[in-house]
């Protein structure tokens, strides 16, 4: 028996005018997306970007434009977000699989990229993430190989979306303060809660500096952004 108790909802119109380039929401949105891209499964093209420094530059530029200052220890050392020229793609891919996807000793990877693996209950964490997405008219993609709702890339992408829409001046769009409140809650309950735990685990691994730096940056950025959004909300939100 299959019963339908909920109609499929429409997705929000994403073709609204974009936020002002360089504005705080636009920059924050971009950082979230760049972090998500770094934690996606690597393909050879993207590995080349990393190796040649394109990714590090893009992220560095975005970080420099943030409306708040990250703690010095959060900023990756120069060159940390690019890989050694001697490292080949297969070694990079294999290490990504070991660290985040499969592990080498059984029972899953040492550092899974799923929020629910870091406390709070896996199903509860996934369901809450879905409820956030749903409230903002989003659903998980139907594409083959789609990720689960508590995966780092999905959560960072959601924050990318919220920040983007926060800065998008749509006459009939939502109140930006609503979006800021949601960012603060989602960060507090989800991303900023567990990404630091992930970073701690990765730090304990013998792995490539790239992964250590990237995950550390994601964790510190999520916490700093939470602090920033909360400070805005403390004065009524939107700046």
């Amino acid at each position: 028996m299959t019963t339908s108790t909920q109609e499929v909802e429409a997705v929000p119109d994403v073709s609204v005018p974009p936020p002002e380039p360089g504005s705080p929401p636009a920059t924050r949105s971009r950082v979230y997306k760049l972090l998500a891209l770094g934690l996606e499964f690597p393909d050879p093209d993207f590995f080349e970007e990393i190796q040649q420094g394109g990714y590090e530059r893009a992220l560095g530029d975005a970080l420099a434009a943030l409306p708040f200052v990250l703690p010095a220890e959060a900023l990756p050392a120069a060159g940390a977000l690019r890989t050694d020229a001697a490292l080949d793609y297969q070694a990079f891919e294999s290490e990504f699989i070991r660290l985040f996807e499969v592990g080498s000793g059984g029972g899953g990877p040492p550092c899974p990229l799923y929020a629910g693996e870091y406390g709070g209950g896996r199903l509860k964490t996934m369901e809450e993430a879905l409820r956030f997405y749903d409230f903002f008219g989003l659903r998980l993609s139907d594409a083959e190989g789609r990720e689960l709702p508590d995966h780092a890339t999905v959560q960072l992408e959601f924050l990318h979306f919220l920040a983007y829409r926060e800065g998008a001046p749509a006459a009939d769009g939502p109140d930006p303060v609503s979006l800021q409140r949601a960012e603060a809650d989602f960060l507090e309950r989800q991303a900023a809660r567990w990404l630091p735990l992930l970073a701690k685990r990765v730090a304990s691994q013998e792995t490539l500096p790239f992964f250590k730096s990237l995950v550390r940056l994601a964790a510190d950025f999520a916490r700093a952004d939470l602090h920033y959004v909360k400070s805005l909300l403390a004065t009524g939100g939107v700046k």
Binding site: P12, P21, R30, L138, L140, S141, R146
Partner: peptide, 11 residues
């Protein structure tokens, strides 16, 4: 600014 969704939306 660019919005790029891989995992969300699109349904």
């Amino acid at each position: 600014a660019v919005l790029s969704l891989q995992h969300l939306g699109c349904t």
